[in-house]
């Protein structure tokens, strides 16, 4: 009995130490990435290529999701708002929920699933097939050549994707609210503009998506770089990328929102 308790405690302790250790090596990896970032700007085509693979390739899923999210928001919002006789405020509801929350958060979650997993799998496989070692032996730092361009591509792509998500979502909401339900066109836009603040809402949304970009890309890169060089290791790392990115995004969202509303 006692031995079972002690082995359970040992298990917890081991996992805790393991987590802390991984977090530490993740932080060190992040610092190295920043230090070796010069290359990704001096040779911009490396970063541009990665923006193509992370940003442009994610466009379709992001835009289609945004369109549907906007339409659903308008339908649901209208349903509730008309009970209080304020269906004119539908534009505000759609725009605020998109710009403040759904735009950055849903984009980040989709990004983790679409681009994050691709990054992890690619880097994990590069490691498993000794491509990273080969680079090291050619006196080329894999962090400068492989990691940093992908990092900056993710960080640049995410706010752009989130802004497009919000914009397309608002258009989707508009299509449902104005032509379909028959809310007044003028009221839709003017109420929206009167209540969505450029600084507090739009800029904060961009800040959020920037932070999510850093977090999601970094997690994807680290998991790939840290993956055991086997098929199982890479597949586990890919799963961890999705789980950890999603948790990080939701947690960071709560923290940032509480600061932004408090301020």
């Amino acid at each position: 009995m006692l031995s079972k308790v002690s082995s359970a405690l040992r298990g917890i302790g081991h996992r805790l130490i393991d987590r802390v250790w991984r977090f530490g090596s993740g932080a060190r990896f992040f610092v190295y990435t920043l230090i070796y970032s010069g290359e990704s700007f001096r040779r911009l085509h490396l970063t541009i290529r990665e923006i193509y693979f992370t940003g442009v390739m994610s466009l379709i899923i992001i835009l289609v999701s945004a369109f549907f999210v906007g339409m659903v928001l308008a339908l649901q919002g209208y349903n509730t708002l008309q009970k209080y006789g304020s269906s004119d405020a539908i534009g505000v509801l759609v725009a605020l929920s998109l710009v403040r929350e759904l735009g950055p958060v849903v984009t980040a979650l989709l990004f983790a699933g679409r681009a994050g997993t691709a990054i992890t799998a690619e880097i994990g496989l590069m490691k498993a097939t000794e491509q990273l070692s080969a680079m090291e032996m050619m006196a080329v730092s894999p962090i400068a050549r492989v990691v940093a361009p992908r990092f900056w591509a993710g960080v640049i792509s995410m706010p752009l994707l989130a802004a497009m998500f919000s914009m397309v979502g608002v258009l989707g909401g508009y299509l449902v609210a104005v032509p379909l339900i028959g809310v007044d066109n003028g009221a839709f836009w003017s109420q929206m503009q009167a209540n969505v603040d450029w600084r507090v809402d739009v800029v904060n949304g961009v800040i959020k998506s920037f932070v999510f970009g850093v977090a999601c890309t970094m997690i994807a890169l680290f998991e790939g770089f840290d993956a055991p060089p086997t098929a199982e290791g890479v597949s586990r790392a890919t799963t961890r990328t999705v789980v950890n990115s999603s948790l990080a995004v939701l947690g960071l969202d709560f923290i940032m929102t509480s600061f932004m509303i408090g301020a």
Partner: peptide
């Protein structure tokens, strides 16, 4: 600098895919 003097052939080539 030292590694610039070396070339290494990995077991399965390790070409950049």
């Amino acid at each position: 600098l030292l590694r610039r003097k070396m070339g290494m052939l990995f077991q399965f080539g390790a070409l950049f895919t």
